[in-house]
Design a protein around this nucleic acid. Structure first.
Lengths: 192, 192
DNA sequence: CGGAATCTTGAAAGTGTTCAAATCAAGTGG
DNA sequence: CCACTTGATTTGAACACTTTCAAGATTCCG
C-alpha cells in the first residue's frame, strides 16, 4: 500500500527506508465512488489527498450555480483546497470524484509533523507546490493571451490522458467557456 | 542594507542572528532605473529579485507584440521567471522597472546553497511559493468566473497600493482586457 | 514649452453566450 | 437483451459584450 504515493515522492526527493517508514505511519487510505464528494464548499478542508488511482476535480460555484473547474487530478497528483487547509477557513472549492478512486490522505496534523520531522518531506512539499505554481502560471498566461483554439490545443497536448477520460463539458468548464463554444471550437479545428 | 528583505523573511520564519549572517553573504544589491530591463525574453533568468524599494512588472509578449502582465512587484515582493531560473531554459517573460527601484539579488548557486545550508531559508521559500500559488489561484478563479467589474474591483481591493502607482493600461493588461474596455468599465462603475 | 504617453469616447466589426431543440450515447430496470 | 430515461454533445439564430480602429482630450516629463 502507498506505493504510488511513495514512488511519486521518490521521483522528486530520494527517501531513505527510515523516512518511508515514518511517512507511512502518518498516511490513511481512502476509497471514493464516482460522483462522491471529498469536500464541499463551506466545510473546512482537513486533508490533502494524493491520487493512487482514479480521477477527481476541484471546482468553485458562482452565484448562478455554474461550475468552474480549477483542477483535475489523476494518478500521482495531489488535490486539496489548500487555502482552507492551511488557514482553517471554510472551503470555497468543492472536490468530487469523476471516477471511482483510491486515495492517500494526509491530515493537517500529520502534514505539520511530517514537515518538522522529515526534511525530505518538506523538500518534497516545496517542489510539489513549485510545480503546481508553474503549471498554473502557464495556464493563466494562456487564458489571458491565447485564442480558444490555442488554449484547447495546449490543454490536450499537455494533458492527453485527461482529455480522454473526462467529459467535454468539464474541459469547457476548465477552459472557462461554455460547452457549446467548445463543441464549435473542436468543429472548426477538425476542418483543417 | 538588506533590512527590508531580512525583515520580510523574519515575518514568515524566525531567523537566528547566525542565519541572518549566513544569508547576507549570499546577497547582492542592485539598483535599476525606470524602464530598465532586468530580464528579457530569450535570456536565461539567473536571479531571483527581492524588491526593497520601487515597483516592477513581469510580462509576456504575444505574436502581435502585445504585453500581458503576469505580475507586479512592490516593496517586499519577489520577482523572477521561475521556470527559466529553475530549468536554465530561455525566459518566456520579460521583467522591467516601473519606477526606479532597489533590489536584492539571489543567484541560482546562492539559492541552492542557501536551501541546503539554512533550513529556515528552505521553509521561507516554501511558504513564499505557497503564498504566490494561492494568490494566483484566486486570480485564475476570478478571471474565469467573474465579470469585468468584479475583477477590477477585486484587484483594487486587494492591491490598492498598486492601483495608485501603476498606469491604467498596465492594470488592463494584468486583467487581460484592453485599455479602452477598462476605461469604460471604470466609467460604468463611477455612475453608481 | 513641446512632444510623448495616457486616457477617453464613438461607431463598426468580431466573438462568445444564451436559449431552444435535435441528435447521440450511456446506464438502469424489467 | 431491449426499452426507457437521463446525460452529453451538436447545431442554429438572436443577442450581449469586448475589441478594433480612429480621433480627441488630458497629463506628464524632459
Amino acid at each position: 500500500m502507498y506505493e504510488v504515493f511513495l514512488e511519486h515522492i521518490n521521483r522528486k526527493v530520494p527517501l531513505t527506508e527510515e523516512d518511508q517508514a515514518i511517512i507511512k505511519t502518518y498516511l490513511t487510505p481512502k476509497k471514493v465512488r464516482r460522483k462522491q464528494y471529498l469536500l464541499q464548499e463551506g466545510d473546512v478542508c482537513k486533508n490533502i489527498f494524493f491520487v493512487e488511482k482514479g480521477a477527481l476535480r476541484v471546482y468553485s460555484l458562482d452565484e448562478s450555480g455554474r461550475e468552474h473547474i480549477l483542477q483535475f487530478a489523476l494518478e500521482g497528483w495531489a488535490i486539496s483546497d489548500l487555502y482552507s487547509f492551511l488557514t482553517g477557513e471554510p472551503a470555497t472549492y468543492t472536490i468530487d470524484a469523476i471516477e471511482d478512486s483510491e486515495l492517500v490522505m494526509v491530515s493537517k496534523s500529520a502534514h505539520e509533523e511530517l514537515l518538522k520531522k522529515v526534511r525530505s518531506y518538506e523538500t518534497f512539499t516545496r517542489l510539489n507546490i513549485t510545480g503546481a505554481y508553474l503549471a498554473m502560471q502557464r495556464r493563466l498566461t494562456s487564458t489571458i493571451s491565447a485564442t480558444l483554439e490555442e488554449r484547447y490545443e495546449a490543454f490536450v497536448a499537455l494533458y492527453p490522458h485527461i482529455a480522454e477520460r473526462v467529459p467535454q463539458h468539464m474541459i469547457a468548464s476548465y477552459l472557462g467557456l461554455t460547452p457549446e463554444t467548445l463543441s464549435r471550437v473542436r468543429k472548426r479545428m477538425s476542418k483543417k
